[in-house]
Amino acid sequence: MSRKRSLALLGAVAVVGCALGGETPPADAPQEKPDAAVDSRPAGQRLYARHCLSCHQADGWGVPNMQPPIVGGTWVKGDPKALALFVMTGGFDSAQRKEGATSHNVMPPFRQLSDEDLAGILTYIRAKFGGGASAVAPAEVAEARATLPPT
C-alpha cells in the first residue's frame, strides 16, 4: 500500500470516528441516505427540498402539465389553517377538491409530517412563493390537524 493511500485511509477512519463520536441514533432507526454536502439551509427550506421541490421545483412554479405551481395560487397566501389542511390532505387531489386537479401527477397527502415540520415548510413557501404571507406556527397546524377524521 502506498504512503498516500494509507494516509487517505487513516483520514477516512478519523472522519468516521468523529461522526460516531457525536449523538448516536438507535441502531434500529433507519437513517435517511444523506446528500453529498452538509445541509446548512434553514429547516423550512431543507424540508421543502426534501418533500416538495422535486415536483414543485426550486422556484415554486411546478412543471407545466405535470405539477401545478405554488406561486400565484390563492392557497399559499390564504388562511394558514386552510393551507395546512390543503397540504395534509393532498392538495387538489384530496376528495373535497377533485375538480381542481388538472395536472397529470397526483399530490400525496403530507399528514405524516409533524406539526413543526409542516409549519416550517408552510412558513417557507408563504415567505418565498406567497408574497411574504405570515409565518405559520406549529400550534396552527395542530389546530388544523385536530379537525381531520382519525386515520
Partner: peptide, 17 residues
C-alpha cells in the same frame, strides 16, 4: 419511474434519483 429518493429516503438520495 420517478422519485426513488422522496418515496424511499432511507435507500436513495437526490443524486441517486
Amino acid at each position: 419511474r420517478d422519485s426513488i429518493d422522496t418515496l424511499f429516503p432511507t435507500l436513495y438520495n437526490a443524486e441517486d434519483n
